[in-house]
């Protein structure tokens, strides 16, 4: 196990191991098995700040971040 392994929390109840400084939001979504087809209806926030989907591939995680991942809902 590389020494720079860290974790991020997801929706306050799940911890995902990442490689600090290398793993991106896309890697985390892949780890959570949220595929790209479903992910278009998903939003992600890091420490309560939403990251637009186009920025996911370039958003590198450093460990300790609190991720909020949630899907769009349409009901009225």
């Amino acid at each position: 196990m590389p020494s720079n392994d860290q974790w991020v929390s997801v929706n306050q109840h799940q911890k995902i191991t990442i490689e600090a400084g290398t793993s991106t939001l896309v890697d985390v979504l892949r780890e959570l098995e949220i595929d790209s087809k479903v992910a278009v209806a998903v939003a992600v926030a890091i420490d309560n700040q939403i990251v637009t989907q186009s920025a996911w591939p370039d958003t590198v995680l450093h460990g300790g971040e609190q991720l909020s991942i949630f899907g769009a809902i349409a009901g009225g």
Partner: peptide, 9 residues
């Protein structure tokens, strides 16, 4: 939300 599908929920 970039887009979403009405079949989802």
């Amino acid at each position: 939300f970039a887009t979403a599908d009405d079949q989802v929920s």
